[in-house]
């Protein structure tokens, strides 16, 4: 079901996260490799955001672990930080800086080479050439999302972790996002998104279904995978548990 043999991949082993007296995630394990587009689905509160948070390093697991592998070699924490890009609900953009300034700042932070060339390219790719020099605060949510994706492009992330990136996007915006993620995957980026939308699940190459913190289904994407996934979610039962289909 895809593994990190070439390019950069993620391995999650028995990830568990406890908040107070509840397991928010329990024993979630999977491997995903370069070029995959993974859709993480589940009802609200199933643990999708937490899973992405753990994968990115934003939170530490209470049990289990995450590793980033490149051609079978485990990357050090610093190397992992260089290649993983996280796009949470908060967007990780400074609202009082312009999109261009945000990109330049993160380029400097990540030590990106040839930033002077990459930033304009990214701004074009995200479709913001006219609004790149206004403070992010003044942009619409959709444009902010685009700028946030631009950040992932500029820092050269090989793993993209996106938490419900289509929130607040209109139809053209969602189409643009789908195309962008597809293009990234073709370049070997491992894309993982938390999602509610059937269309996105169908476009994915892999579907992970979370229910009450457990990984209950791990199947290939596409129309069939989407159907099975939403059956499980709507059924509200722990149907097929674990294992690749």
């Amino acid at each position: 079901m895809g593994g990190p043999e070439h390019g950069i991949g993620l391995v999650a082993e028995r990830l568990t996260r406890i908040i107070g007296r509840r397991h928010v995630l329990r024993d979630v394990s999977f491997r995903a490799g370069a070029g995959e587009v993974v859709a993480i689905v589940g009802r609200n509160g199933a643990g999708k955001s937490t899973l992405l948070s753990l994968l990115s390093g934003r939170q530490s697991p209470d049990r289990g672990g995450v590793r980033v592998e490149s051609d079978g070699r485990v990357l050090s924490p610093r190397e992992s930080a260089t290649v993983v890009g996280f796009l949470p609900h908060d967007l990780f953009l400074y609202p009082d800086l312009t999109a261009r300034e945000n990109l330049a700042f993160f380029a400097s932070l990540y030590g990106v080479r040839h930033a002077d060339e990459r930033i304009p390219l990214a701004i074009d790719a995200i479709g913001l050439p006219r609004d790149a020099d206004r403070p992010v605060r003044t942009l619409s949510r959709g444009m902010q999302q685009r700028a946030a994706i631009g950040r992932l492009m500029v820092i050269g992330a090989r793993v993209w972790l996106l938490d419900e990136p289509t929130t607040g996007l209109d139809e053209p915006g969602r189409a643009w996002l789908a195309a962008t993620l597809d293009a990234a995957a073709r370049r070997g980026v491992l894309v993982a998104t938390a999602s509610h939308y059937r269309a996105e699940v169908e476009a994915a190459t892999r579907v992970l279904v979370l229910d009450a913190g457990r990984l209950v289904l791990d199947v290939a994407g596409g129309a069939d995978g989407a159907t099975r996934a939403f059956e499980v979610i709507e059924g509200g039962i722990v149907a097929a548990r674990g294992g690749a289909a």
Partner: peptide, 15 residues
């Protein structure tokens, strides 16, 4: 006690 509650929570949802 917290650990017990956690264990209870862990067992919920198991068939």
């Amino acid at each position: 006690i917290d650990a017990l509650f956690l264990e209870l929570d862990r067992r919920e949802g198991l068939p």
